[in-house]
Design a binder for these strands. Structure first.
Length: 414
RNA sequence: GUGGCUGUAGCUCAGUUGGUUAGAGCAUCGGUUUGUGGUACCGAGGGUCGGGGGUUCAAGUCCCCUCAGCCACCCCA
């Protein structure tokens, strides 16, 4: 038994953290539903193949970040490092490709074995949306609009910048990739060690390098624009026009690429400067080849995922917890009455705190700590007349209320 | 995975050039005469000084290892 520390990179969500977490998920769900994205969930583990195939054998996520286990039966299963592959697998498992287009929202834990930092944990949580079966730029625009709307509703839109780029269709991308590899291979000696490695695994990533030497090389590297075919360029133009029409601000970033293999065309990220190196709050793009890659019919897709912890950290205020009404019995006889009154109030829709022990003072102190709105005091004097003393804990005013009229009298505290 | 910084009560921190029973504020608990909270006053409990090893007559203070957090790289949400 190592210790009582939580496993590295994992965190408990105690009530205060949980409220932030929930605020993010609940507003996201609400807004997503307004756009017609319905919540669904997939298992948190899948056959390893599901991720290997889709994320790319050479991707960092697959090569060094997955939690993979061998089962007795000889199966390899992996804790999901992201959710898009699972959603597509669910689409195929369920024969849902017949009902396109499909619009999904999800929220849940993901697992990646990385070195933890602020905003980067080994178990973290994402929300995300996926739009399947829509080849038009309108789909990309809707997805981004929904994302922006969620950030706006959370009060975070002004903290972020939307960066956008196109990775082109597979033909354009392949042609560009070849040109890039040629160029960087010719300058291999000047590349950073990391980038030399990227040259074979994911050459586009070199564009994104922070190494100064690399940046100098990148400045003179072939530009993607020269390799984009007319269709790809036109498609990107439509996406941007759509964003303009909706008044969604963006910045073009030609160096924005994605680490996962399945992306094509639109790639975007909502980035903040408030989280240090982990600045990506929401990221996504188009993945037209993914369904086919998994053995399904050729089906276009667009989506994004966003880090719940990252958004929760950006939230300006602590979401308030529920403010209960404290029911406080005085004396043994009142104890039993208190229980049934608490039951009635709870059934009537009130949040009720009924302490388990202590004298009046104790219980009032507890009520105060719970941030209770009011206290209902039940003692022999009151019960003899079928009354209760209701004390407003903000003002300190109290009055005698007949038990029959209790729910009405408390209505203001609901 | 690489490099760096940090680690003292639940929390935020102070601990002099290594030297007796390790301190403060907040929080917690108890009390200020018992059917009334939030303010005030009084008092109490609580620390394997992240863990392990070493140097020394003596280590929270020095050295090594290890764990964790943080920062940057990397990666990504």
């Amino acid at each position: 038994m190592p210790s009582l520390q939580p496993v590295r990179g994992t965190h408990d969500l105690l009530p205060a953290d949980m409220r932030r977490h929930r605020a993010v998920v609940e507003t996201a769900r609400l807004i997503a539903e307004r756009y017609g994205y319905q919540e669904m969930a997939t298992p948190i583990f899948e056959f390893t193949e599901v991720f290997k195939r889709t994320l790319g054998e050479a991707s960092d996520v697959v090569t060094k970040e997955m939690y993979t286990f061998s089962m007795k039966e000889g199966e390899q299963i992996t804790l999901r490092p992201e959710n898009t592959a699972s959603v597509v697998r669910a689409l195929l498992s369920g024969g849902l490709a017949q009902q396109l287009p499909l619009k999904y929202f999800y929220a849940g834990p993901m697992f990646r074995h990385e070195r933890p930092q602020k905003g980067r944990q080994r178990q973290f949580h994402q929300i995300g949306v996926e739009l399947l079966g829509v080849p038009h730029a309108t789909g990309d625009v809707e997805i981004i609009a929904a994302g922006a709307h969620i950030l706006e509703e959370l009060g975070l839109l002004s903290d972020t910048v939307l960066e956008i780029n196109t990775l082109g269709d597979p033909a354009s991308r392949q042609a560009y990739r070849v040109a890039l590899v040629d160029y960087f291979t010719a300058h291999q000696e000047d590349l950073s060690e990391d980038s030399r490695d990227r040259l074979t695994r994911n050459p586009l990533r070199i564009l994104d390098s922070k190494d100064r030497g690399d940046r100098a090389l990148v400045a003179n590297a072939p530009a993607f624009g020269d390799y984009l075919n007319a269709e790809s360029e036109d498609f990107f133009g439509q996406v941007l026009a759509g964003l303009d029409r909706l008044g969604i601000a963006y910045q073009l970033n030609a160096r924005l690429v994605r680490g996962l293999d399945y992306y094509s065309h639109t790639a975007f990220e909502f980035i903040t400067e408030r989280l240090g190196a982990q600045g990506t709050v929401m990221g996504g793009g188009r993945y037209d080849g993914l369904v086919e890659l998994m053995g399904g019919p050729s089906t276009p897709g667009v989506g994004w995922a966003a880090g719940i912890e990252r958004m929760a950290m950006l939230l300006a205020e602590d979401p308030p917890g529920p403010r209960p009404i404290s029911v406080i019995p005085i004396g043994q006889a009142a104890e039993e009455t208190a229980q049934s009154i608490a039951r009635d109030l709870r059934h009537a829709g009130f949040t009720v705190d009924l302490g388990f022990s202590g004298n009046v003072k104790k219980r009032l102190q507890r009520a105060n700590k719970q941030d209770a709105v009011a206290a209902v005091l039940l003692g022999d004097d009151e019960l003899a007349q079928a009354m209760a003393t209701v004390r407003d804990l903000t003002s300190g005013d109290q009055s005698q209320i007949s038990l029959d009229a209790l729910t009405e009298a408390l209505a203001q505290y609901r």
